[in-house]
Design a protein around this nucleic acid. Structure first.
Length: 462
RNA sequence: GGCGGGAUAGCAAAGUGGCCAUGCAGUUGAUUGCAAAUCAAUCUACCUCGGUUCGACUCCGGGUCCCGCCUCCA
């Protein structure tokens, strides 16, 4: 019985798809004006693992993750670079796809882009105008269209906010062109030299919130199962999406809202103003994608995730242990599925995707494999196959153990390593321990760790 | 000010009313030419004060501290 925490109701709920065995899921993707940072990586990894698990559970999942490829920051960045925004966004979309692949994130079923969804967006705004949920600004900003927050009775349901409290916050900049400071923009008139699309309200571009409403309903229908994203999108972005979509369609928008926690660095929120964020690429220079993925999944998706080099080192050691247990065994094609570990794993994942608990099951299996591998290789291989299968559901251990353990970021060539190992084996055969140790020390210097087992020497990068 | 989430061993991180989480690190033993890997054993826990209970880290109440959102943000 799969239970998922629903931000809308503040509790774990038994998951019941709208259509039996089908899951329609939308996650807010990136605004592509820069490289992915760790926060983006977390969203990508966490929802990827969920989708993989849902599929393992037998659901037919339609997973949509959008791309915001037009907005103020993109325009500004393109101007700074003196390049066309399409060139800028294409570059960062490609970079994101590369980063995602490194992290073992599978492509979504569809990846709609705002600029390719203009008709849908404009139609939805028009519907909101027709239904009197939206209005054109008065005065100079006549080309802007705003959403009338007071017209939507349930505004604030997701974030647990009341309109009056929000107004009292006084952190909303007063904009005299709006009827209410909380009203938000649906269509933004183009200033000179800005990219624009034709619309009934003149040349302009969509506001950020409307594109997600339009693209999600376009891809998944008016009413779908799961909508996810980072915690910071809960308000106002997702709140506004609900207001737009439900006002436009008259139907319930989303059953289940999911929000992942932030990434922090030294217990501070990662942010550009603090200058303490890391791009995925920077980290990939030091650690493998799978190590980053493990690091992300080692915490529950709703908890804050603190970044520290030591934790990535931890992830590396942990993965090495898992791969080591798989190493040297021939796994059966299909593992027996009656293992108690599978039940524990499923129980953990069924409980709001408890990946840390699920990982603990993997380590218990690794321990069993290690204990049995000499005395009962058959059972050990069986267990190892279960371990691999379960890990694969999380997108881990997808590489061959030797490939993973031999791969790494230091430069020593395999050929060179093999030659040194060969020389050391000869020295050992001659019982020339001093020479054997000298070679091993040399390899250690090169970042290579040796393991002598049953007359054979295997190696891995530290 | 409004709303929400936390406080678990050296570090990280799950979980449960009474019995082992797990990973990394440490200590000891086995194994090894010596290591590494592995196995075994082992040391470190549940912010604080009350209450409920035969029994609470786990339930309830008060306190302290930390964090997030309310503004673009994954």
């Amino acid at each position: 019985m799969l239970k998922i925490y629903n931000t809308l109701t503040h509790q774990k709920e038994i998951f019941q798809p709208i259509e039996p065995n089908k899951v329609k899921m939308y996650v807010c993707g990136m605004t592509v004006y820069d490289l992915c940072h760790l926060g983006h990586a977390r969203v990508l990894v966490v929802f990827d693992a969920m989708v993989r698990y849902l599929r393992y559970r037998g659901y037919k999942v339609t997973y949509i993750r959008n791309i915001t490829d037009v907005d103020d920051k993109i325009i500004q960045r393109a101007n700074e670079n003196n390049e066309h925004i399409a060139d800028l966004t294409e570059r960062f979309i490609n970079a994101m796809h590369e980063d995602a692949a490194q992290l073992g994130v599978l492509p979504p079923d569809d990846e709609p882009r705002a600029t390719a969804s203009m008709d849908t967006i404009i139609n939805m705004i028009q519907t909101l105008m027709d239904k009197h949920y939206a209005y054109q600004a008065s005065g100079e900003k006549h080309g802007d269209v705003y959403y009338d927050v007071s017209a939507f009775a349930h505004y604030g349901q997701l974030s647990g906010k009341k309109l009056d409290d929000l107004r009292a916050g006084e952190r909303v900049a007063v904009d005299t062109d709006k009827d209410d400071p909380l009203d938000f923009v649906l269509w933004k008139a183009a200033k000179p030299h800005e990219p624009y699309w034709e619309s009934p309200w003149g040349k302009g571009r969509p506001g950020w919130h409307i594109e997600c409403s339009a693209m999600s309903t376009c891809c998944l229908g008016n009413h779908f199962d799961i909508h996810g994203g980072g915690q910071d999108l809960q308000f106002p972005h997702h709140e506004n999406e609900i207001a737009q979509s439900e006002a436009a369609t008259g139907e319930k928008f989303v059953n289940l809202w999911m929000h992942n926690g932030f990434v922090r660095i030294n217990d501070e929120k990662m942010s550009k103003s603090l200058g303490n964020f890391f791009t995925v690429r920077e980290i990939l220079k030091l650690y493998k994608g799978e190590e980053i993925r493990y690091f992300v999944l080692a915490s529950h998706y709703r908890s804050p995730l603190n970044y520290a080099d030591q934790l990535l080192d931890n992830a590396r050691s942990a993965l090495t242990r898992l791969y080591n247990s798989l190493r040297g065994l021939t796994l059966p094609e299909e593992p027996s599925m009656d293992d108690e570990a599978i039940q524990r794993f499923t129980q953990a994942m069924d409980d709001d995707f408890n990946t840390p608990e699920a990982l603990a099951v993997l380590f218990d299996l690794a321990g069993q494999v290690n204990r049995l591998r000499e005395s009962d290789t058959g059972t050990a291989s069986q267990k190892a196959a279960v371990l691999k299968k379960l890990a694969n559901i999380l997108g881990l251990l997808e590489t061959e153990p030797d490939v993973y353990l031999h791969g790494g970021i230091n430069a020593a060539s395999e050929n060179e390593i093999e030659q040194l190992i060969h020389a050391r084996l000869q020295a050992r055969a001659d019982k020339n321990w001093a020479e054997a140790d000298r070679i091993r020390d040399q390899l250690t210097e090169m970042g290579i760790v040796l393991e002598d087992k049953a007359g054979k020497t295997s190696w891995r990068r530290a």
